[in-house]
Design a protein around this nucleic acid. Structure first.
Length: 477
RNA sequence: GGCCUCAUCGUCUAGCGGCUAGGACACUGGGUUCUCAUCCCAGCAACCGGAGUUCGAUUCUCCGUGAGGUCACCA
């Protein structure tokens, strides 16, 4: 049996969003599951729509997610080139075969005339079929007119690895354009030639292509080639609507998620389980597990909504599983600017306190700020605290003064701090909700922080005591 | 409008004729000597509707309904 070969064939017209990632990911998983090859191919036959930088962006996105292709535009391969605009000769050769066999002809109409036919059909509330206007006589195709496929309409039934058995009547078969008047092939033609020449075995793509499949099957017959195995991916929908996910729904492209501090593994696992699972109750999968367990027949047939909360949970969960060293190198770019003055050992201790609190890396910047910078005393923190706003400034000062005295001779290791703080509770006859909250506010000037003793221990004696002193002077008596 | 596809908690899903319809996210309540988070426990919550097949339908069939796709010299 020939090896399984799949491809991801985006047009470089934009950035890679989650829907595209999923198609790429699933195609890659199919290939790797069967020890086959995964190919990247750029479909840049519409020059007008091409976006500067999109190719690099696509490549970068796939690489960062670990979706590595075996053949592609930048690395070459046995079927190079992997860019359609560089394969025009090939399309022309196949097109000429169709012309010779009478299965393709020059479109005699102007764009306006075709547009009129289309409008006419719409007014009669009928689907537009070009072949209803197929000319009886055609001129020689000289490249200045579009080249159209001479279809042979018939019923089709075929199998889709995801959707199951599909079928349509002959009514959907039409004479679509193979080569545009600018000399470039359409997607409909080019991808079939490429997939055939590159020995692609499985074609995965979005459900918007289902209704084109019969036309593709008809073309395969005219070309005398075997169609691949089809697999249709359902759409990923926006968070609130039923519409296909788009930029407007807040759908960010993959690199943005990486920038915010999502782990590639989290993104991969999340996207894989959006519309797929292996029938067990496992929620998070490593890449090798995915390769192992993936199968197309377990892919959901209906669209799935993009739920960022679930992604956050997955990412946080994976962050918590990381060892501190690799987490430390992952968050290198997310420290507040003031952290530049501190050494790695200190930052690593701070990081340990926040590991279980992060949903994504960029949260670290704000959360850890008070470990690197003395923040001004914020009176709101006390006035809005239900326990503390009952006490007078004098009472608060007294508590802080006692704290100061108590901690003066502490070595500031965590165990000792716990002991001292407990003694302080006894001596002041206060509840933790009062005393600990007060101290926490004094040293962090933040609405929340890691546990008090650990925060004190990492912050260190000198700065902790200074901040308590500052808080005292800011309180009115 | 024609054609095609889809339909289980708010969300992602398990289920493939017989289950108290399971899990996870989210949410709510409780516990872990302050807060935030983690962790643990508990709770809330679903088979789109109607016929049929069957001893029995979430599961099979049909008809509705709803949603999506498609009908380009875009992919």
């Amino acid at each position: 049996m020939s090896p399984v070969r799949t491809r991801f064939a985006p047009s470089p017209t934009g950035f890679l969003h989650v829907g595209g990632v999923r198609t790429a990911l699933f195609a890659w998983l199919v290939a790797k599951h069967f020890n086959g090859q995964f190919i990247l191919r750029f479909e840049d036959t519409d020059q007008k729509r091409e976006v500067e930088g999109a190719k690099d962006h696509l490549i970068k996105s796939l690489k960062i997610l670990g979706i590595n292709y075996d053949e592609g535009p930048d690395i070459g391969g046995p079927y190079a080139p992997y860019i359609q605009s560089l394969r025009l000769d090939s399309y022309k050769t196949w097109a000429n075969k169709l012309v010779e066999s009478g299965r393709a002809y020059a479109d005699p109409y102007t764009a306006e005339e075709v547009q009129f036919f289309r409008k006419e059909a719409a007014e009669q509330k009928k689907p537009f079929l070009y072949r209803n206007h197929r000319p009886s006589k055609t001129e020689q195709w000289d490249g200045s007119k579009p080249l159209r496929f001479r279809s042979e309409p018939k019923d089709y039934a075929w199998h889709d690895e995801v959707m199951g058995d599909l079928s349509t009547t002959a009514d959907v078969i039409d004479d679509f354009v193979l080569i545009k008047s600018d000399g470039f092939p359409t997607y409909n033609f080019a991808h079939i030639i490429d997939d055939h020449e590159m020995n692609i075995t499985h074609v995965l793509r979005g459900q918007e292509f289902i209704s084109s499949v019969p036309n593709y099957l008809n073309l395969h017959e005219a070309l005398g080639i075997q169609p691949p195995i089809f697999a249709t991916m359902p759409h990923i929908l926006g968070p609130d609507g039923q519409k296909k996910l788009s930029k407007r729904d807040g759908a960010r492209d993959v690199l943005e998620y990486i920038d915010i501090g999502y782990l590639p593994e989290a993104l991969v696992s999340f996207i894989a389980t959006l519309g797929w699972n292996d029938g067990t109750e496992q929620e998070i999968y490593s890449t090798s597990e995915l390769i192992n367990k993936f199968s197309l027949d377990k892919v959901q047939r209906s669209g799935a909504r993009f739920d960022e909360k679930r992604l956050n949970w997955m990412n946080g969960s994976l962050i918590r599983q990381m060892d501190i060293k690799s987490l430390f190198s992952s968050v290198r770019n997310y420290w507040p600017p003031e952290a530049a003055d501190f050494d790695d050992a200190y930052k690593e201790k701070v990081l340990a306190l926040f590991q279980e609190r992060l949903k994504y890396f960029s949260e670290l910047t704000e959360l850890s700020k008070f470990f690197f910078k003395d923040l001004p005393v914020d009176p709101i923190l006390i006035s809005e605290n239900k326990q503390l706003n009952k006490l007078s400034g004098g009472e608060l000062k007294e508590l802080l003064n006692k704290t100061l005295t108590k901690l003066q001779d502490s070595s500031f290791n965590n165990e000792e701090l716990i002991e001292k703080l407990n003694q302080l509770l006894d001596e002041t006859n206060q509840k933790p909700a009062v005393l600990f909250s007060l101290i926490r506010i004094a040293i962090s000037q933040a609405p929340s922080s890691p546990p008090l003793s650990e925060t004190l221990a990492v912050l260190g004696k000198e700065r902790a005591l200074q901040r308590i002193t500052d808080q005292i002077s800011a309180l009115s008596s």
